[in-house]
Design a protein around this nucleic acid. Sequence first.
DNA 1: GAACCTGTTACTGTCTGACACTAAGTAAAT
DNA 2: ATTTACTTAGTGTCAGACAGTAACAGGTTC
Lengths: 246, 246
Amino acid sequence: MSLEPKPIQVHFAYQQIAEEIEGRILRGDLKPGDQLPGETELATLFGVTRSTVREGLRQLESEGLIHRPSPRRMEVAIPQAELLTTRAGRAMALMKVTFRELWEVTMEMEPLAARLAAKEADPDEIEALQQTHSELVAAEGHMTRTIEIDERFHMQLAEMGRNRVLSLAREPVSLLLFRGFAQIAPFNPQFYKRQIEAHANVLAALRDHDADRAEKWARKHIEDFWRGAQIAGLEDEIALAPRALT
Amino acid sequence: MSLEPKPIQVHFAYQQIAEEIEGRILRGDLKPGDQLPGETELATLFGVTRSTVREGLRQLESEGLIHRPSPRRMEVAIPQAELLTTRAGRAMALMKVTFRELWEVTMEMEPLAARLAAKEADPDEIEALQQTHSELVAAEGHMTRTIEIDERFHMQLAEMGRNRVLSLAREPVSLLLFRGFAQIAPFNPQFYKRQIEAHANVLAALRDHDADRAEKWARKHIEDFWRGAQIAGLEDEIALAPRALT
DNA sequence: GAACCTGTTACTGTCTGACACTAAGTAAAT
DNA sequence: ATTTACTTAGTGTCAGACAGTAACAGGTTC
């Protein structure tokens, strides 16, 4: 007789601890900001040793569900993108994704970000973005800094669209794409000018709440970025390891 | 005098262990599939106790950098989306993202997936997708199953585009969106017909390698999906907790 | 030779118990 | 009411132990 492969899954004690606590967090028993009981307490509570509890805590910690504001407190974390994005970036780097892959996705994400921002942004945010743009202008000619500011510009833009899913999804991608480029792509002076022009146009469109125009210029901007890489023949080049990104 | 908040970061031993091993993996010293040295060995190697090593390993484990094919082996993981996606999904759920946010992003991702698939897919894959589609047809009227198959259809489609970044990025989003819907949105019988029609059209476009048409129908498909939700007034409803998704 | 059984062994999961160090709370001193 | 000194509880790490079992190595059977 042939048995179906049973996806049996051993559940170690430390996993169960982690799952149990995770459950309580997701269920809302433990709210973000709440302090966790002490390790010894948890240990007796679950009927295991401290070592076991600790292993569970380490899991939750690296999953970003709990964090440590001071070395003495462990509390339920306020969910935030950061942890997730770095991990996503690392995973992608490990998969050795190519620039083309990154670009294809960015090409959809950034215009969307611009469109949403045009609809949602309030004057203060636009002002802040203008500020970033000024920094970009000031950095003309300096590539590393240009890329870094550009990246910040796009992040701000994404946040302005008030879509956390988008913010979450685009960040690791654009991070890998932009910074990756910066490290290997040679840019000509033209590049900076077009960069600045595109940003300026996006900004203007935002002020007018003109979603279509914002989107169009964002697309142009990314296309431009890409053209340089195409010329350099980087399309199927592998993006850099994330270590270079930190 | 006022001191600036110094972002000092204590590095505990177990963190260093984790970082050290992570470094070796990312640097390529340890390749995916390689078996890790035993815990005792690592302990002496780093000059710490097994407990400490274990806590480090738990971190890496939940980060998906190492995994356990059998309870007795720990090896460097082959990077894959799975782990990441569930975490991403959970993070999003924790952030209580709305359907609108999910949809706005999906609306870009899925058409892109279709377009890429039309360019890249080979006959075998199209055949496999056709297979999935047949299942969908057979499930007509049964909502939960329909959604589940639909989701699989889209995943396959995305894989066919040979863009791992896209696969990675879209999965948690569409998972949350589709399954979330399935649990709270009431669909009328019409829905299934249109669903099937859209898929059929995408399939046909793939066969012709007609990227534009594939994209168009994918967009139509997602729009359709959304319309139901709009009618039901779910736009700003919060997506479900991830526990409901497993 | 390959396919099966069996004993050994090395390694994991978990436990007990301990100790140094320090953040945070408490009491004393100014 | 602050500041200072003192306690205390909780964390990070260690040492050593033990049961259970996956993986390996022989030995057996076909």
